[in-house]
Amino acid sequence: MASFFKSRLFFISIAIVIVAATLPLYMSGYVLGLLTVAFYFGVFAMSWDLLFGFAGEVNFGPTFLIGVGAYTAGILNAQTGWSVYPCIVLGALAAVIAGLVLALPALRVRGPYFGLTTLVAVLILQNFIVVFADLTGGEIGLTIPDVITINAGANYWIALGFMTISALILYGLAQSPIGLVLQASGQDPVQAGALGFNIVKHKLAAFIVSAFFSGLSGALLVFYMGTASVGTVVDIAVGVNVIVAAVLGGRRTVLGAALGAIFLIVAGEFLRPTGELATFIVSAVALLVVLFFPGGFLGAALSHEGRS
């Protein structure tokens, strides 16, 4: 951790955040709005990277945690009329509970079985949202009465600040002994266990942290958009985007995941003139990166620095 503060990466990150913080002074509201979504998405991808990239589990369920956080916050606001902030906090807490519930069966199994358990969790959540349409707004969306603010600049700063703080905590955690144990358990669980580490405890901790940030980010996103829908925070396609963002940016780098997410969202918008083909092009580019640059954006950069 201490070495991080002296590393080049740290200074580059600081510089980027400072430049990013000045954007509202000269950028249009539209660009800010786009980046706001991208920043929340970046937190999704970083949380996923902590759980998967380090613990080595094929987690298809990021949207289970995101969705629980987002919908809990949204429904509370719509049903009780409580103000935005308590709803956001309760949403994040609900996501933590969901993370614990998911971890119970998920930690018993590995590999594809773990993947399926997390996938099924998403499908069940999706089904419940549709079945309880009276409460959730069903298939196409829940309309939420309140938003944090409609000021594009303020929204942008909130998202940027939130992402920066999340990145610090998640990155710090990944570099700490907890992160190293997780990484060891991902590569060789038997040996890591034999060395005396309680792997289940560490994985559970990773689950909870990942769930907290996913849920918090989901809740914030919902109060930015003023709507929650299966297509934005629960659908498997969203989970796939989170995974693709993390893999694109470079797994086990945490910060790379945020870069990947910003790239995905911004690229998708640049391709808007291509109409319905935008998703196709983004997927094709992502596939090429996965096939030819498996380390991702930051993976390549970091491995150079690591060696030097």
Binding site: V58, P112, V240, V244, V247, S283, V290, L291
Partner: peptide
Amino acid sequence: EIFILTSTLLW
């Protein structure tokens, strides 16, 4: 494994 899962999904 994760690379095959991710890339077949993208495909």
